[in-house]
Design a protein around this nucleic acid. Structure first.
Lengths: 368, 368
DNA sequence: AAGTGTCACAAAACCGGTTTTGTAAGTCAA
DNA sequence: TTGACTTACAAAACCGGTTTTGTGACACTT
């Protein structure tokens, strides 16, 4: 595996002009102690020979890689996360303007996540990390802080006080969601969430509770269900909640994937999402617009978030204090057609559901 | 932006043991001319000090980066490509096993694509490239071949004879699609494709034509439409084809995004996809399963393709001849529910459509 | 006229590894 | 016993840059 690309080096340029290589370097790095004449000759030679400095050699001396890293957790669900794809796009765009690059690796378990982090740090392949999908008690963040290695988190952990992060105000967003549903006329509002290990899932659940409390609505533990964050999980969650004696007339879902599965369950029972049952998601996935009914969802621009986080990390590398780099954004409700005033009360819904279920016993989940 | 990570160097290890640093290097690289005793002492010190070699320094000498690059075209559509997300996952997994990493950059125009390629090559940040979404006449591939820089393409170009590639047999797949539709009873089969600059789009169109010919069906140019590869494009394409005097009873779409838009158009007109009109996509997007109706589609494993391509690139770097690294795979039809026997003839469909269109004039496209 | 700066560049050190070259000590055959 | 090989390692060169140090030529004071 040899990669002996016989490319032009700084020595070639120096020899071509007849100066020392240090001089060439100084010209290229805009030092002032070079005569105009020499500068021109060197620049011309650089042009002619098509010289570009080797990032590796430069990095070795500078101790910097001009490369940021991101480790993506994969495999604990089905396929890649559409949010992350746009997020990475946003990062790459921001970095491109600064001449930095992004190293992407994946990890399929918690241990592997840390192993990969360690390897990249030890080998000095990156200058800093972007951490996504933070957990309440996140081993990656613990490790990076312990190592004092620069990073920025997209999402917070249980104690977000001492590192840089960018996050959505999940609590407020979900409290707003509850308020929105209440204003539509819903009083029994269900929450379909994900594992509380994930910080955003916990915050969204908390926001849901806060929303209920602010409105003086009773909190009913039965109206909360936590599932795997996937369409399948959404299907099961909707099944759980709608099988209650007093089913919710609206389902606030922690992600679009959950909402999509919930809508599917409704359709399976012949319920119209948007009138018989209201379903709201979160993520603003483009495909939501093409579902039936088009999905009402909270949206943040993943691309924008990526750019923002990348720039924050660069600030950290420039020596800014991480504590001063903490920002909260709000998600926007995109109303499409899966929400609306309830067409029946919880009691009527329960009755309708009982009839359907008797007619048509469930197969448990959509199967292949 | 200083990154003076005071980490352990090979000199520290050498001094700690009392040997020359070359000796340490030889131990770590499994040279045989080291006594068992010395080897043990060095290994112990490495362990104790937690030494890990700097990738940068090693790369400088070796002239190799242990890093592969991928440049993703973005921005000429809406958001990130879900296929690519899984594809990258597949690459990253394969590379992880070999201790290599993946550098991801994005480019938002043709020129930018080449600029980025040039920069990465000149700066020697990567050892080879993976090129995706090949065009019939692809400037990236032309450039890489001219530079003799190692790469593997996912997808072919007009002349795929002299480089390494992995591709789906688009022609056969789409010819099979036509055969499948014919066997269901369809005789007027439409094709909803994308720009012929993209090689896969062209091949799928060609496969469609070949399928018709093999079955002795007439080829009607009106039954082909090319649109932007997006849900919006699919919506417009379906509108175009179904507005014909003799509309197709089945739509073979070049991608899932197109199919999703086409199904939306059908729904808007009150047509049931799967009976009134058959729609088949290509990509096997997971979300297709949760559409109404669940989308019938051709599928290839993006993740598998990523792994395959990564391993091919490593073979190229190891010196294998690119010509010997060319592989064609087949996509599999995943039958869900958007295809079926036609419920009406083309004439009946035309009549039905005319009535709908009079009742309910179109807004042109789905709006916000 | 000698001392002092400045200018513009050369020369060399350095970053942290790998690889080549050199060599003292031990082994073996003649 | 001596020359030829091994063995096991030290020393140095090298990768391609950046940065520090050194220096000759000239201008400018006093």
């Amino acid at each position: 595996m040899s990669r002996l690309r016989g490319s032009v080096t700084i020595d070639d340029v120096a020899r071509h002009v007849g100066v020392a290589k240090g001089t060439v370097s100084r010209v290229l790095n805009n030092y002032t102690d070079i005569s105009e004449n020499t500068r021109k000759r060197i620049l011309k030679a650089v042009q002619e020979l098509g010289y570009q400095p080797s990032a590796t050699a430069r990095n070795l001396k500078r101790g910097r890689q001009d490369t940021l890293g991101i480790v993506i957790p994969v495999g604990h669900g089905n396929g890649a996360d559409p949010f992350l794809a746009e997020f990475i796009d946003g990062i790459a765009r921001a970095l491109d303007e600064l001449g930095l690059d992004l190293l992407v690796t994946t990890a399929h378990s918690r241990e592997h996540l840390i192993t990969t982090l360690k390897r990249l740090i030890a080998r000095r392949k990156v200058d800093g990390f972007i951490v996504t999908r933070t957990e309440v008690d996140d081993p990656r963040i613990a490790y990076l802080m312990e190592q004092k290695f620069p990073f920025v988190a997209h999402g917070r952990t249980g104690d977000p006080s001492s590192y840089a992060w960018f996050d959505i105000d999940n609590e407020t967003t979900f409290a707003d969601g509850v308020r929105h549903l209440y204003s539509l006329g819903h009083e029994r509002i269900g929450f379909l969430g994900g594992s509380l290990d994930l910080n955003f899932a916990r915050q969204r659940r908390d926001g849901y509770r806060q929303g209920l409390e602010a409105l003086g609505l009773a909190h009913d533990q039965d109206l909360e269900t936590l599932q795997a964050i996937s369409e399948k999980g959404g299907f099961k969650g909707a099944q759980t909640l709608l099988s209650l004696d007093g089913p919710p007339t609206a389902l606030l879902c922690a992600t679009d994937a959950l909402a999509i599965g919930a809508v599917q369950f409704c359709r399976k029972l012949g319920l119209q999402a948007g009138s018989d049952v209201t379903v709201i998601g979160y993520d603003g996935l483009p495909v939501g617009e093409y579902l039936d009914p088009p999905l009402t969802t909270f949206s943040q621009s993943a691309q924008e978030a990526g750019g923002r986080v990348a720039r924050m990390l660069i600030d950290v590398l420039d020596g800014k204090s991480p504590q001063s780099l903490q920002a909260l954004a709000k998600a926007k409700l995109i109303r499409r057609a899966s929400d609306g005033a309830p067409s029946m009360t919880s009691e009527a819904l329960a009755l309708a559901l009982r009839n359907r279920l008797n007619q048509q016993p469930l197969s448990g989940s959509k199967g292949e």
